[in-house]
Design a protein around this nucleic acid. Structure first.
Lengths: 362, 362
DNA sequence: CTGGTCTGGGAAAGCGCATTCCCACTACGT
DNA sequence: ACGTAGTGGGAATGCGCTTTCCCAGACCAG
């Protein structure tokens, strides 16, 4: 038994398919009450479910929103996804998920797949990469997005515009003030600590990571401090752990040379919370304590990590809101008035949140 | 400029749409090499992207997998989603996401939406509810799923079958041995602790929660212990926190009455990790220490929570694998031979993992 | 050299729905 | 009374693609 069609419903109700369509799926023309009831009843008794594919084909719009993330199990992306999902629901759309591991090549594929499905809009979360090895893929990604936009698609990117993308109509960027916030974090940390800083960053070329590093260094400079050393590692927990091990060794050797053993030796800034947690775990595994032997701060304020002890100093980012904003940005009708200056990008603000992990020991 | 169509490509290549279709999208018949090349080149130069909607309509199959979760930002579901995503990729399909907050009514809507989009299969994660207030919604959910299956859809449910669902062809259940594992956990805990147990459970009627509670009690009985008291609360971090506050008060008052203050007063079993973390946070906020004043265990072994200190005793569940299995279960071609006994449900095994949070103080 | 089977390409019929156009009919106006 | 605008329903077309079905030519055996 195949799903019943509009035609069957129409026949059962004794009307034409056109009329049935008009009553069942919102149309400008409203058929008469009695007929409408008959159709609705017929639909009910047949368990009619409109074929969204056919509808989409006929109307050329699918009610789909494509979401591209690196990894849906990463709490950072999961939080954004929640926002996207919420906004999608507001627009009565469904979200199509694609995970790419951050590779521009796979992101290009995902965009193509979304385009094939005629997704109404695409939200790209996740850090852009501008490593030279990704150059070509990035170019293709940009071209693919461009084409998608020209065909009427709307896209929103969280963070940075796709490298090399021109800005056609319908291309939105939800800017995240990574640099400013990292700077503010540095300033605040510098106020309570006069020792050395070290940064655990992601691979060079990861824009989000680079921005945060740059911002932090600028903040340090503003506070009259020397730039921090930068450790490059993977942009995840494992990377943080590795870097943590290195730093632990260094701290321990430093302690043997130094005098009092009870003062922190280092203030560590990991460019995201997950890395910070990894680093903390490494320090702990090496017998070091936070904030006694070293202080540490992260970035993002991941919800699941808030109960972590010692409480992690970080920069609060409204992740869910970011997802929602990005999605909404793509949702505006193209004919929307309201002096839509095309720019008018929504603004995201974060907040430096100092907690126990950077409490300077007096 | 609208996206170019197959017909345009065909015209450019000087062949019929039929031929173009055959070369560009897998068909049984392979046109001649020279012609194929010409078509491919035409497609390339036009930047042709097949319209998946039209393809779906024509083939009546969409290449979509619907995933239903309570909340994508919950690490439990995020982990499952990762597995689903991975398996979907194996099958060259995309995943459609729906979040429902666990309400059967919304789940029904999601199933209908998936059915409308002609999703090839649906994976339902998240605890089934059998509260009486959900009775009607559950019935409708079951009916909707039933219809979906009869129309050729395949569905996999993680954990329990949908309440009231008959088991039509194409309906798979990935059983999670919650009860057995909770029992095993209880037994192991009982071996190292001879005081009282208390369970922090979800609302009554949440099948996953109920199973774990029942299993734990059985394990206790097997170990010759009295059943634990059960605290009902919300199935999330906040619920755990609330319950934790109650228990903290109780522990403290008990301590005033009791003798030595340095022995744990209680062994707490929270039915999932997130609740356990919430409870831990509450105890800590009340000045209690784990495992000194109380020991605690969770369930799921959420990855993000593994760096939590004190390390949480829990039951390791292969969440990602579960998502993958569920998805694969729906992927088998209906004509698959291999003595497909229809039953042959994949098996999930977990593992009791005792860590610091339940280390009995000697 | 003819009748037969293959082979590879094209024509055309949908897939299920939205929508434009058209027509019959009613309700007015003067 | 007739004419006109307005209303509500149906026929038909097309969205972009897949897939039979058909046909022309190639190729082989007899």
């Amino acid at each position: 038994m195949a799903a019943s069609t509009l035609t069957e419903v129409a026949r059962l109700a004794g009307v034409s398919p056109a009329t049935a369509s008009r009553v069942l799926n919102g149309s400008a023309r409203k058929p008469g009450k009695d007929i409408a009831d008959r159709v609705r009843q017929a639909a009910e008794s047949l368990g009619y479910i409109p074929n969204a594919q056919a509808q989409g084909l006929a109307k050329s719009s699918s009610g789909l929103i494509g979401l591209i993330v690196h990894d849906i199990a990463d709490p950072y992306f999961a939080a954004i996804a929640r926002g996207v999902q919420a906004a999608a629901r507001e627009q009565r759309k469904m979200v199509l998920l694609a995970t790419t591991g951050g590779a521009p090549g796979e992101e290009r594929e995902a965009v193509a797949a979304f385009a094939a499905r005629r997704a109404d809009s695409i939200v790209i979360a996740g850090s852009r990469s501008c490593r030279t090895e990704d150059r070509d893929d990035n170019t293709e990604l940009a071209a693919e997005l461009d084409r998608y936009c020209r065909n009427g698609g709307r896209v929103a990117v969280v963070g940075h515009p796709v490298v090399g993308a021109t800005a056609p109509e319908g291309y939105h960027v939800v800017a995240v003030p990574n640099q400013e916030l990292a700077g503010a974090l540095a300033v605040e940390l510098a106020a309570g600590w006069d020792g050395d800083f070290v940064i655990i960053g992601g691979p060079e070329g990861l824009l989000t990571s680079d921005d945060r590093i740059r911002g932090f260094q600028e903040g340090l400079a503003r506070a009259g401090r020397a730039p921090a050393e930068i450790l490059r590692t993977a942009f995840n927990r494992a990377g943080g752990y590795d870097a943590g091990l290195q730093l632990a060794a260094r701290i321990k050797s430093g302690a043997s040379g130094g005098g009092e053993a009870a003062a922190p030796k280092l203030c560590i800034f990991a460019v995201n919370d997950v890395m910070a947690i990894g680093a903390s775990a490494a320090l702990r595994a090496e017998g070091l304590r936070i904030p006694r032997d070293a202080t540490i701060a992260g970035f993002d304020d991941i919800e699941t990590l808030r109960d972590f002890r010692p409480a992690l100093s970080t920069v609060r980012l409204p992740l869910e809101e970011i997802g929602r904003l990005a999605t909404r940005a793509t949702g505006r009708m193209s004919g929307d008035s309201d002096a839509d200056e095309d720019g008018e990008q929504p603004t995201v603000t974060g907040e430096v949140t100092l907690r126990r992990s950077t409490e300077a020991v007096a």
